Computed example of a mutant assay.
Amino acid sequence: MIERKRRVTVFVLVVLVVVVAAGAYGWSEYSRSRDAQTTASDVDLAPADAPITGERIVFRSTAPGDLYGRVAAVAADDPGGPRSVAPVACDRIDTTGDQSVCLRTDRGIVTTFEAQLLDADWQVIQTWPLPGIPSRTRLSPDGSLIATTSFVTGHSYATTGFSTETVIHSAGGDDYGNIEEFTLLENGAEIAPVDRNMWGVTFVDDTTFYATTQSRALGHTWLVEGDLEARTLSVVRDGVECPSLSPDGSRIAFKKDVDDGSGVHWSIAVLDLASGEETVLDEERNVDDQVEWLDDDTLLYGLPRDDEPGVSDVWAVPAAGGAPKVLIPEAWSPAVVRS
């Protein structure tokens, strides 16, 4: 009996030590995170009374400190220069300048995800819930259509068994629903794979868009052309992920899996829509992003830093081929505002 009591006492003491240690670790991590977010970020800022306007690149700041996650902007002709900072934080951002779409995570007692449509002064016009982790978002050229993609399960397109939900609706409130429900056509004939995931919308106009459709069962990752009025998706090409239409509408940049084995390694490629010619660019690192066109000659994309968790940079690479370079340090999710 005495031995049993002794064992119980020892067990209780061990539990208390574990609980105290866990609590101390949790408080330490909370304090570290709080301190990191309240420490001033070491970046050059434009004057608060003179925000950057005109042709600019809008992005999510990944500079450690109080600006982490905030939406920022730099002049297109001075991307490494001072940045303006907006009063909103986003995981993903796209903008026309007059309005923006912001995908964000609300880390409350229960973590939730939402999309916000914001005006030119960063005031909320609309908000709606997302079913999971924010992944991609795009506005149509005039800002009248909004596409959002969220992970319903999984955290990466490289994850086996991931599931996404991609929805298009208008700034006026019309809902086109989950484009997974559109009719999928190949050479004019309907196909109905048992599994289907959609992501990476890029708009042509207020009716037409391109996107990725994947069927793991059939072993295809298609570039499809979508028609909102007909509610159809027509296969254009295989092996295309996260398309991005060039400003002149003649080419699509995308990420292409170039791994010959069972793994995944995405390079950036450019497809000429008229000729069907495909060019794989000179970026040898794995690029898991939907690229953005700076202009008709240059592509932008985000790459995380290997030695600084949570910090990424926006890189640029010539669309015709050439060496990539850092364009905006400590940045993610670039969106170009053209005059």
Rank of each mutant, 00 (worst) to 15 (best):
W128M: 04
V101I: 15
P134K: 03
C102K: 02
D98S: 10
Q99Y: 04
D121G: 09
G132I: 10
D121K: 15
T137N: 13
T111K: 00
R104C: 00
A120F: 02
Q126N: 08
L139W: 09
C102I: 09
D121Y: 05
P134D: 05
Q99N: 11
I109Y: 02
E114A: 12
R136Y: 13
T112S: 14
L117A: 07
Q116P: 01
G97K: 01
R136Q: 12
G97Y: 08
L118M: 08
T112R: 06
L103E: 04
L139S: 05
A120R: 14
S135W: 12
D119I: 09
I125D: 10
G132P: 09
L118S: 03
Q99M: 08
I133R: 11
W128H: 02
R107W: 10
W122H: 07
T96A: 01
W128A: 01
D119A: 05
T105F: 02
S100Q: 05
E114M: 07
W122N: 07
L103Q: 07
T105P: 11
E114Q: 12
I109C: 00
S100L: 06
W128I: 03
Q123C: 00
L103R: 03
E114F: 05
T127P: 01
L130A: 02
T96P: 09
L130K: 03
R138Y: 00
L117C: 07
G132L: 10
T137E: 08
S135F: 13
R104H: 06
A120H: 10
G97M: 12
L103K: 05
P134M: 06
A120P: 10
R136A: 01
V110E: 14
V110I: 07
G97P: 07
R104V: 08
R107M: 11
D121C: 06
L139R: 11
D106I: 12
Q116S: 06
G97H: 05
A115T: 10
F113R: 06
W122M: 14
D121Q: 14
R136F: 13
I125R: 15
P131N: 10
C102T: 06
D119C: 06
P131V: 15
A115Y: 09
D121E: 14
I109K: 04
T137W: 00
S135M: 11
W122G: 00
T112C: 05
S135V: 11
R138T: 15
R107K: 12
S100R: 05
W122L: 06
W122Y: 15
T105K: 09
V110L: 14
L103P: 13
C102Y: 05
Q99T: 13
D106A: 12
T105I: 15
T137R: 07
P129A: 04
V124G: 00
T111L: 04
D119L: 09
Q123G: 03
